[in-house]
Nucleic acid binder design. Structure first.
Length: 758
RNA sequence: GCACCCUUAGCUCAGUUGGUUAGAGCGUUCGAUUCACAUUCGAAAGGCCGAAGGUUCGAAUCCUUCAGGGUGCACCA
């Protein structure tokens, strides 16, 4: 029996740069990313249960980074595994318009290259620029997703701002508006003076600094001293609050004072409120309803008037009084402090730790301002489509605490609850141009009666929610659309079902929703995951996904965030070019336990390239010593034990994938292949093949045949087990195998470790 | 202020419900190699598992306290 020669390709080391494009072409030709094709071609049974993941859509703000690469690797492992298991598997790709993020990238470019602002171009022209940029960025991203080997279904690709998704956004807005969940209201917003827009609470980050706490009296005869770190806002005070049990101030509660303070006339009422901490400062708070969230709430409780003294450009308004009106807030502060000194009203200046609120995107210092904006009510009781009445907050808690949605790692559930407990109404309107225009039309400033039909005006509806411009039968005024756009997370919140065709009742929606896993970085648990649960709950009375798997952040070797300014960015494409996509993937998987950050360095990626070559050479050895006749060989006891060992590995890998321990799964197959299969089993085989006398009936010939079969079986099973982790090299090898069950490894069956066959 | 996470070999990290001499990768040192693998193989050095108590027949693992590092949220007059 003459052993077959291994294909020539194995005589050279594994070359990912050469093999990967060929493998990509094979996959593209196969079309198995689309589950319908899998069913058509018979690799998936018609009645197979479904398994679905929607890709968290990358922002069209440029190129993908290592975090995206990690996300793609993890999801592709889950997808390939389930596809091989025989499930009807859908991985739906897409990109996110990322409103504020994309707009600001384009604005910066515009400023840098042409010294223009968006207002110089006008809304239409500017939007065209943004769209061009978004398209370019989209194409780059698609190329990168492919290069990573992600087996997504491109036929279902979606964009958060395309037509279908726009319809979903308008429908969602309308339903929530009709239910009273979305309302327009004058509340304190996080105003970003730099970006000239509102931002949500979650888009605000806090920086610790040291500030000065000033203790002073409004005037000589004012009975109470107060403390503040923002003296410039004090010209907008309308009350002084003390704790109801504070004996020092009890006698003053309810009294009113008119004072002249730094050029402003203040009418101050002394009130009692439990929000006041008697231990802090003097135990008395100057209440500024227009420029502080807590003060605004106090003002609501006590029906206090509101005086806005700072405007959208962080300048003092006319209402701030003659001393500081028109000045920058920072200047106003100095002015007022010196005024206090001049008038001998300042008791104390002391250093105090404080947090400065910054807008996440623009870095502007947040100025709390009262503004008329659109909000999602999270504490309002509403009827859900399933008939139940509850608040959005209650829903969000229930679906997690009841176990309908599982968060992995579990500790994030606590963080999630904590976030919900502190959740305030969600401000969804933004004063930027790129995004979903708010589908609301107004008769503003007012309705205009039609001559001769003046009484009709009572029937007129001055605010209408609609995708198209409505016509008014009762009034002569035109409807004007709201100028604002929606928070990008509003459309992202619909992602699991807008991608499947909602609000149409599509087959996809029925088959793939709820999705099985939402896999993303823990940094957007609140931004996105919580919002998806909220939106899906109200609109579908359903959950968007059964599992949330949170991966850690990819950092540099010193544990720092990768950033342009630090110059420590590792570009996934460069890594793929140098070491292959398989190596890049493995470096992001092994050693990355759920929810924990990964420290990545180039040598780490390089190390896994060796592994791909190892598999390559194992194959060479096995095929050089293989013979199809060996497939019918009678197995020796020894060899049966080896096959049993391989089954145990298959069992271990499977269990770990099921438990989201991809790091452990990858690790165990890695070690089995290298340390057991290559280093020991193959080494032991060499003498067996040497001793082979070529006669199938002799003991030596029989032993060799048994071993040939065994090596082939172990290789065969190893390729399958490795495939989700290293799809390229395994698929390239599969192509060369003389005996196999399927044209492509990506649709071969996952090893059945319960049966006799590996 | 309220939570959470991390601390194990020089570096990066595993060690999943407590169970024999604590593991891997990279790095270091020594050796082998006409042999599937210029990307290979073997071996060695290197750890009072952050500290102190406790529970237990038995603790890296469970409990308490503390220290250092990090994160989230709140407060921020």
């Amino acid at each position: 029996m003459e052993p077959s020669k291994a294909p020539e390709i194995f005589l050279k080391p594994y070359d990912p740069a050469m093999q990967e494009p060929r493998v990509l072409a094979l996959w593209e030709k196969g079309g198995y990313g689309n589950p319908d094709v899998c069913v058509e071609k018979g690799v998936t049974k018609t009645d197979a249960p479904s398994y679905s993941i929607v890709l968290p859509p990358p922002n069209v703000t440029g190129t993908l980074h290592m975090g995206h690469a990690a996300m793609l690797a993890i999801q592709d492992i889950l997808i390939r595994y389930h596809r091989m298991k025989g499930l009807r598997t859908l991985w739906l790709p897409g990109t996110d318009h990322a409103a504020i993020a994309t707009q600001s990238v384009v604005e910066k470019e515009l400023q840098k290259k042409e010294k223009k602002t968006r207002h110089d171009l006008g809304r239409e022209e500017f939007l065209k620029r943004v769209e061009d940029f978004a398209q370019m960025s989209h194409d780059t991203i698609v190329g990168q997703i492919k290069a990573m080997g992600a087996s997504v279904d491109w036929s279902r690709e979606a964009y958060t701002l395309d037509e279908t998704r726009s319809r979903a956004v308008q429908e969602a807005f309308k339903r929530m508006y009709d239910a009273g969940l979305i309302y327009r209201g004058n509340r304190i917003v996080n105003w970003d003076p730099k970006g000239q827009t509102t931002v949500s609470d979650d888009e605000v980050t806090y920086e610790e600094t040291t500030g000065v706490l000033y203790t002073f009296r409004y005037s000589k005869d004012f009975p109470v001293a107060i403390a503040t770190t923002r003296p410039e806002t004090k010209v907008g005070d309308t009350a002084v609050a003390v704790h109801p049990n504070d004996k020092r101030y009890k006698e003053f509660i309810g009294q009113k004072f008119d004072v002249e303070f730094a050029g402003a006339k203040l009418a101050l009422k002394i009130i009692a409120d439990t929000a006041v901490d008697p231990e802090f400062g003097t135990g008395a708070v100057g209440v500024t309803p227009a420029h502080s969230f807590t003060d605004w709430e106090i003002a609501q409780r006590h029906e206090l008037p509101l005086v806005q003294v700072i405007d959208e450009h962080a300048r003092m308004t006319e209402a701030a009084g003659e001393l500081v009106a028109g000045k920058k807030a920072s200047e106003a502060r100095e002015r007022i402090v010196s005024w206090l000194k001049e008038n001998d009203l300042l008791d104390k200046e002391e250093q105090t730790p404080m947090n400065i609120a910054k807008a996440d995107r623009s870095g502007g210092t947040i100025e709390p301002l009262p503004k008329l904006q659109w909000w999602v009510a999270v504490d309002k009781e509403v009827q859900f489509p399933n008939g139940k009445t509850m608040t959005l907050k209650e829903w969000m808690k229930d679906v997690v605490s009841s176990g309908q949605i599982k968060i992995v790692p579990e500790r994030f559930e606590k963080i999630y609850y904590n976030w919900i407990d502190n959740l305030r109404p969600w401000c969804i309107s933004r004063q930027i141009w790129y995004g979903h225009r708010i589908p609301v039309w107004y008769h503003e400033p007012k309705c205009i009666p039609i001559p001769g039909r003046e009484s009709d005006i009572e029937k007129c509806i001055p605010i209408i929610v609609s995708a198209e411009r409505p016509e008014c039968k009762f009034c002569a005024a035109q409807y004007h659309q709201d100028l604002d756009t929606l928070d990008t997370w509003f459309s992202s919140g619909l992602w699991t079902f807008s991608t499947l065709g909602w609000p149409e009742k599509t087959r996809d929606l029925e088959m793939y929703h709820p999705t099985d896993v939402l896999e993303t970085g823990y940094d957007i648990l609140f931004f996105w995951v919580a919002r998806m649960i909220l939106m899906t709950g109200f609109l579908l009375a359903d959950i968007p996904f059964r599992n949330v798997y949170l991966h850690g952040l990819v950092r540099d070797e010193k544990g720092r965030k990768m950033s342009k300014s630090l110059g420590n960015i590792i570009d996934p494409l460069v890594m793929i070019q140098k070491y292959g996509a398989d190596a890049a993937r493995l470096s992001l998987i092994i050693g990355a336990s759920p929810g924990n950050d990964v420290k990545l360095s180039e040598p780490r990626v390089a190390g896994y390239k060796n592994f791909a070559n190892k598999i390559w050479n194992i194959t060479r050895f096995v095929l050089e010593n293989f013979d199809v006749n060996a497939l019918s060989a009678k197995l020796n006891k020894n060899d049966e034990v080896l096959l049993e060992e391989a089954k145990n590995i298959a069992r271990e890998v499977t269990k770990n994938i099921e438990e989201f321990r991809l790091d452990l799964a990858a690790n165990s197959i890695y070690h089995f292949v290298w340390d057991r299969f290559a280093a020991e089993i193959i080494e032991e085989s060499k003498p067996i093949f040497k001793a082979d006398d070529g006669s199938p009936s002799s003991p030596s010939g029989q032993a060799a045949a048994s071993r040939r079969y065994t090596l082939y079986s172990i290789l065969y099973a190893s390729l399958k087990l490795l495939h989700p982790f290293m799809p390229f090299v395994t698929e390239a090898i599969w192509r060369e195998l003389p005996q196999k069950e399927a044209e492509l490894l990506m649709v071969a069956r996952w090893p059945q470790y319960n049966s006799r066959n590996v």
